[in-house]
Amino acid sequence: MARRAGRSRGRGAVTVRIDGIARLRDRMHELGPDIIEALARAVKESAEAVRDETARTVPRAGGHLAETVDIQYEDGGLAAKVGWSDPTSYYAHFVEHGTRRAPAQPSLGPALEAERARYTARLSDEVRRALR
């Protein structure tokens, strides 16, 4: 479902990636457009849930992380990266993972874990609706 992105490409980027078709990528040509749209809806719902929960729980003191958590969609909406990619949010990594002097105050990780349990159900529900 989701995985934490490795080291950031851009300075300060902290993201997770939510894939809607990891196991189906090789068989996409067999799926109808209704199923693909259903998968994209489920990915969007999950990405928005992770974004909203992260924004709700991120520490507010001294920053603007709640306002800059973002979603970037890829693969026609079948994959999403959720997190901070804005260069002014470079410190999100330090807040999320902590430093020698400051304890970690994670918000993205817990939001991802909370959504992980709902993600499969979202996918199944959307596909069932599309098949009706």
Rank of each mutant, 00 (worst) to 15 (best):
T68V: 10
S85E: 10
A66P: 02
S85V: 12
D75H: 10
S89D: 01
D75N: 13
L65A: 07
D70N: 15
D75W: 03
Q72L: 10
V82M: 01
A80N: 00
A79V: 13
V82W: 02
L78H: 14
A79T: 14
G63Y: 05
S89T: 02
V82G: 11
A80R: 00
A66F: 01
A61V: 13
P87G: 11
P87E: 11
D86K: 11
A79K: 08
I71L: 04
E67P: 04
S85I: 12
D86A: 15
P87K: 10
E74T: 05
A61C: 04
Q72M: 09
A61R: 15
Y73Q: 02
G63M: 04
G76K: 00
G77L: 03
S89G: 08
G76V: 07
G83L: 12
W84Y: 15
G76C: 02
G76Q: 00
L65N: 05
S85A: 11
A79Q: 13
E74I: 04
Q72C: 03
Y73G: 04
P87Y: 09
K81A: 13
D86R: 11
L78K: 07
D70W: 02
W84E: 07
E67V: 05
V69C: 14
S85Q: 09
E67D: 15
Q72H: 12
T88L: 12
Q72G: 12
K81F: 13
V69Y: 02
Y73D: 05
G83R: 01
A61W: 06
H64A: 10
W84N: 09
G83A: 06
I71H: 05
R60V: 14
P87I: 07
G76P: 01
T88M: 09
I71Y: 06
G76I: 00
R60H: 08
G83I: 05
A61K: 14
